[in-house]
Amino acid sequence: MKKTILSQLELDEKLFSGHSACPGCAAVLTVRHIARTLGEDTVLVITASCWSVIAGAGPLRALDISVVHCPFPSGAAVASGLKKGLQRLGSPETRVVLLAGDGGTFDIGLQGLSGAAERNEDIIFICYDNEAYMNTGMQRSSATPYASYSTTTPAPLVNKNPKKDIVHIMAAHHVPYIATATIAYPSDLVAKIKKAMEIRGFRFFHIFSPCPPGWGSESHKSIELSRMAVETRLFPLMEVIGGREVVLNYLPEKYTPVEDYLRLQGRFSSLEPGHVMMIQENLERNWDYLQRASKRYRYEDEYWS
């Protein structure tokens, strides 16, 4: 697998240094990998999110591909219209990719997302999920996990609702391709983007994206936290093909207890033992369900040969 990562990274760099992301931002690494995989014949639409800032204050720009910013709930429809316009004007091959945070996906962008998915618009929708409104300073969203602190769910009350299951919501739209990914597994991320690039119609990515200032984690721990999210099975690496075929890409050999993951983050500092038990039980139930619904997928078989 290592050899493959290196060959991926030889692709053109599309992210300039000097961008305004916080230290340890997983969203910036995510886009770095995605942008160079997508290449030049791409228009990236960015809806209100941390990336509205990271992409650069005008007239500067942090990315070496064309970017169009748009209002918070509008991303899916703006990207769809842009794609339609390009098709009309004789550029059907140009890829249109939408970048949205969890707020622009799970909350305020959900209606437009559902509409675009239902119409099977020919776009790639990428949600980088840092599990709260981080650009405005850590207010809860419907992607905020159970028992997490946020400025709008302060301790001791913390967040009482479970995280919305966006992958299954999207799967219910029966779109051609859905994938989850994180920067702890860059080959997986890049391979999935490449796979999505070969598919026509609506493609959805849910990307787990640690945020050190919001999560109260150390900035050098973002990749480790991403890996732990997968190893605990809180965030399974998976694909859903056509809304019905569930593929689990990675089965950890040893499961990391969720407590180890939670302990590294200030947002869970007021966690009680009962909370931890509930989180562990929930993820076991979810994993159980996924295992029954899916088939195991070995990278070696198809991606990397």
Binding site: V45, P71, P73, V78, S80, K83, G85, G112
Partner: peptide, 22 residues
Amino acid sequence: FVVVESEYSAMSYLIGAASAGA
């Protein structure tokens, strides 16, 4: 001719289409 799921998306769609030059 594209029928979308809300007026909000109708205008968003046009913002995209016009950004492409249509």
